[in-house]
Simulated assay, not measured.
Amino acid sequence: MHKKENIRVQMNELGRLNQAFVFIINFEADHALIFSPDDSSQLLWQTRQAGNFETAKVKTTTMQWEIDPVAFSAYQQGFSRVQQHIHNGDTYLLNYTQPTAVKTNLSLEEIFHESQARYKVLLKDRFVCFSPEIFVQIEAGKISSFPMKGTMDATLPNAKEHLLNDSKELAEHHTIVDLIRNDLSLVAENVTVEKFRYLERLKTNRRDLWQVSSKISGQLPQNYNECIGDIVYKLLPAGSICGAPKKKTVEIIKATEGYKRGFYTGVFGYFDGKNLDSCVLIRYIEKQENQLVYKSGGGVTFLSDAKSEYEELVKKVYVPLKDKS
């Protein structure tokens, strides 16, 4: 049996037994890890209401943070290839990402404890993630997704108004909401958009950001716990971090980005035996030998400007630090 099928079947079986577990699945959905929720030997994690670690004391030293993003000329080459595919009709929204080398005085584990986010994940000596983006939540048989599309520096004058009225951001958000609605319809009935384009403010070590999300929900069948693995895998990869149409867009991503995403833009989740909470693995730092690499990006449409998209990629290279005041 293929490893992907092994993991999917294992998730189904644990769900049938109403047994709790946590999981990580990579972007390509061909590699996954499953852990007992209490096992902190390799994995530390936190969702909205659960976690498996004791909060460590926040350090008093100032965080050092230096970044070395890909050169704009190199980014522009990939961006131009994406635009060519858009003009050819191969894709109409593609989440284009690139790696950024970072230097800091903190270890991955220290960053994990210092950061504040809705979801936090530390796969020891491999990566840390402090994600603001929900993948799907399942509560009492209702499945909901909260795609996040649209980011702006919150310190800019009238930032909220500019973000909500930006035609490129609006078109991109409409596309992702349609894609997620179609995805949820593969596993649920009566899928509806409950909330369209609401704002959340994120505090980071560099600047505050406004981000835009929507909420889409549907009703799962009564025995959903017995097919929890099927449900998760049918929804992969997360639409917000690939684009539309999904299958062709993923092919273009793999051919254009020039590096492997790995667990970046994959998903992490916690199943408590009945309900599921999960996130998209964005805002992500990976250890590559002795180098730390931050992976980030944004959605590209025919309305996109290369310089603006590059600046957004760089703005997302941050850590949402705990407030020490």
Rank of each mutant, 00 (worst) to 15 (best):
F196S: 10
N26E: 05
R283L: 01
K324F: 03
W45V: 00
V136Q: 02
T62D: 14
N12P: 00
F135W: 09
V102P: 03
E226C: 07
K149L: 10
Y294I: 04
P320N: 07
Y119S: 14
S145K: 05
Y224D: 02
Q76G: 04
Q19C: 10
Q98V: 04
D39A: 02
S167Y: 05
G258K: 04
K316E: 06
S167V: 13
L14Y: 14
T192N: 11
G89Y: 02
F146Y: 15
N223W: 02
Y284H: 15
I24S: 01
E251I: 04
G239Y: 06
Q42N: 10
Q76I: 01
Q84I: 02
K324N: 14
Y310S: 02
K248W: 03
A29T: 10
Y270K: 03
W65M: 02
K160I: 00
G258A: 06
V177Q: 12
E54I: 13
A188M: 09
E13C: 02
Q116T: 12
S325W: 07
E251F: 11
A171K: 10
V250N: 12
A238I: 08
E289Y: 11
E54A: 12
S80G: 07
N165C: 05
K246T: 08
G89D: 08
Q116L: 10
A159F: 11
N190D: 15
N105C: 10
S278A: 10
Y119H: 10
G299V: 05
I25Q: 01
P320Q: 06
V232M: 12
T97E: 03
I231A: 05
Y264R: 08
A238E: 09
T204N: 12
L186P: 06
F23N: 04
E189G: 13
E5N: 14
V102L: 13
Q46F: 04
K160R: 14
Y96Q: 00
L276P: 09
V317I: 13
H173F: 09
A238F: 03
S304Y: 03
K124A: 12
G229W: 08
E110F: 03
S40P: 01
R8M: 13
